[in-house]
């Protein structure tokens, strides 16, 4: 069973909650799909077993010994990535999308594509199972593809180890990396917090998951920081028919646990947040059993 923890807004507590769920699962394959800013390894401190190179697209490079400054590449480039400055055409690496078109049409054969090969994927063993995480080299493209690679590695590890539960910590936002993190999963938890910003992000996230049709429910984190806004969010979810799995209070223990490289279930299982998270996990297990029974029937 693949379970993804997502949130439109960053900083709502996805990783801390995923870490807690991983602890409750007792054994799980953890996939940190926030390849821009992976954090789960800071809590789980895995023993790295394998590292893989990920090719994050390509960038065009001009060979000035061959370039005749005809400007055809600039005419064809749709990403504004070729500029004329200081007497020559130059590639703007930030804007280059790696489509290769300029290298194909250059009549002088002056443009070649260079692979972005600094991104990595690591696998390792942590105290409750296996984990895999990606590290996209800053500025490199195609984070969605690296996420897909992390997920397929997680599935492979799940099959080999016989650990059925795969927990996915997803990046913030609703773009390609998020879509890639949740496509085809069995279950989605959306973590939100009671602020108007997070509420607005939640609406867009629900809209996205509706498009995918995956079963989702919402966890409201830090609900007591603005109980009134929390009520508004609950009301909205009720109207939309989206279940609220649980509400966690703001608890500095989350931060203290993180500082000690632990999850809140390991440091303070009896805290209010710890108890609510345990209930969320129990409910999920029941869902799983019901699903199995209905498949048998």
């Amino acid at each position: 069973m693949e379970i993804a923890v997502i949130s439109g807004k960053g900083g709502t507590g996805k990783s801390s909650i995923t870490a807690a769920l991983a602890t409750l699962a007792k054994s799980a394959v953890l996939a940190d799909c926030d390849v821009d800013a992976a954090n789960m390894h800071l809590i789980m401190n895995p023993d790295i077993r394998e590292s893989f190179v990920y090719i994050a697209g390509e960038k065009a490079v001009i060979d000035y010994a061959k370039c005749r400054s005809c400007g055809l590449c600039q005419d064809y480039c749709r990403f504004d990535a070729i500029r004329f400055g200081e007497g020559k055409y130059e590639i703007d690496e930030v804007s280059c999308d790696g489509c290769k078109l300029c290298s194909r049409i250059c009549p002088a054969g002056a443009i070649t594509m260079h692979k972005n090969d600094k991104s990595r994927m690591h696998t390792g063993i942590y105290r409750y199972g296996h984990m895999v995480f990606g590290r996209l080299e800053p500025g490199e493209e195609n984070s969605g593809k690296l996420v897909a690679m992390v997920r397929s590695k997680a599935r492979e590890m799940s099959e080999k180890s016989g650990i059925n539960t795969i927990l996915i910590d997803s990046p913030p936002g609703i773009g390609c990396a998020v879509i890639s993190s949740v496509t085809g999963v069995d279950r989605i938890f959306i973590v939100t917090e009671p602020s108007l910003s997070a509420f607005s992000d939640l609406k867009r996230t629900i809209e996205l998951i509706d498009l995918l049709g995956t079963r989702m429910s919402v966890i409201i984190n830090k609900y007591d920081l603005a109980p009134h806004v929390s009520d508004i969010i609950e009301e909205y979810c009720r109207e939309k028919g989206v279940e609220i799995s649980g509400k966690l209070p703001f608890d500095e223990e989350f931060v203290h646990s993180m500082v000690q490289c632990k999850s809140i279930i390991e440091t303070k299982p009896d805290s209010e947040a710890g108890i609510v998270l345990s209930e969320i996990w129990k409910k999920l297990l029941n869902e799983k059993i019901r699903k199995q029974i209905s498949t048998i029937n």
């Binding site: 960053g10 390849v35 821009d36 800013a37 930030v94 804007s95 996209l136 800053p138 500025g139 490199e140 493209e141 984070s143 990046p171 913030p172 936002g173 773009g175 990396a177």
Partner: peptide
């Protein structure tokens, strides 16, 4: 800026 360290942030 958007969060992260990939293309949206860089741009």
């Amino acid at each position: 800026s958007p969060p992260g360290t990939s293309c949206p942030f860089i741009h």
